[in-house]
């Protein structure tokens, strides 16, 4: 296992990441297929929610991922901020759009479930509001990266913002315990074991693993894209420089 400093070399990183992506992408397809099969066809309908419960298998793992990716983003930012690790900065930058997409997916599927169950697309509830804020935090983080030309400076400033925004993560996690929420409390990761039937846990965990593997594949691919884009910028800059020298001479 190479240590993180060896991985700081983009060429070495590429050599490890590039062959891993097809495997991760293939695993995503298989896991997602199996997960969707169990969620949509091979799991019982809820005695109260009937078939609407199947939205949960898309919604709950997306919400888990929204929190996980922000935590991952903050940790990568911390590694980049403290050890000046350039690939950690790239990882943090490329995590943000994927995390924002998971957050949006959780919000949209939650709204689709909320309409038949609660009678409203949206309620201003602690859990829903704090996840919406998480979405805006992702947008702010992406905006900071886009605003600065100097990548090193953008990385440091975006990292500082991610540390400040991390305050929201425990608020989201515990919002259902701290406030009287319409949203149901944690029913899988809780003291005394899950309160969900095993027949419903299978599709839930399959979907969660599928999302995680998808995240790994998408992150590695976008990191490779970003590294290629930066190399292109450097080459173009070098070309204009030599070009102007030729004109002067």
């Amino acid at each position: 296992m190479p240590n993180i400093y060896e991985l700081a070399n983009p060429v070495r990183f590429e050599r490890l990441a590039r062959p891993a992506i097809p495997w991760l992408a293939g695993a995503t397809v298989i896991l997602l297929g199996a997960g969707l099969y169990f969620s949509l066809f091979n799991s019982p309908a809820d005695y109260q929610q009937s078939d609407s419960v199947r939205i949960m298998y898309v919604h709950v793992p997306a919400a888990w991922m929204a929190l996980f990716t922000y935590t991952f983003l903050t940790m990568a930012s911390a590694i980049g901020f403290v050890w000046k690790h350039p690939l950690a900065d790239v990882a943090a930058k490329e995590t943000a759009p994927i995390g924002a997409a998971f957050t949006l997916l959780a919000l949209l599927t939650g709204a689709l479930w909320g309409k038949p169950m609660w009678g409203a697309w949206w309620v201003w509830d602690a859990r829903l509001t704090s996840v919406l804020i998480l979405f805006f935090l992702y947008l702010g983080y992406i905006a900071v990266w886009r605003a600065f030309d100097d990548k090193a400076r953008a990385a440091r400033l975006a990292a500082i913002l991610s540390f400040v925004g991390f305050v929201n993560i425990p608020i989201i996690k515990f919002s259902v315990d701290w406030w009287n929420s319409l949203h149901q409390p944690a029913s899988v990761f809780r003291k005394g074991g899950p309160s969900i039937d095993p027949s419903m846990l299978t599709p839930l965990f399959l979907m969660a693993i599928a999302y995680t593997v998808f995240f790994a594949a998408a992150l590695l691919q976008s990191m490779l894209n970003e590294l290629a884009a930066r190399r292109l910028t450097r080459l173009e800059a070098a070309e204009t420089k030599t070009g102007s020298v030729l004109v002067e001479s």
């Binding site: 509001t129 805006f136 947008l139 702010g140 905006a143 913002l161 400040v164 929201n168 608020i171």
Partner: peptide, 13 residues
């Protein structure tokens, strides 16, 4: 404008 985007979620509590 960027300040508004950054700061609004932090103002919410």
């Amino acid at each position: 404008l960027l300040i508004s985007i950054i700061v609004s979620p932090l103002f919410v509590p």
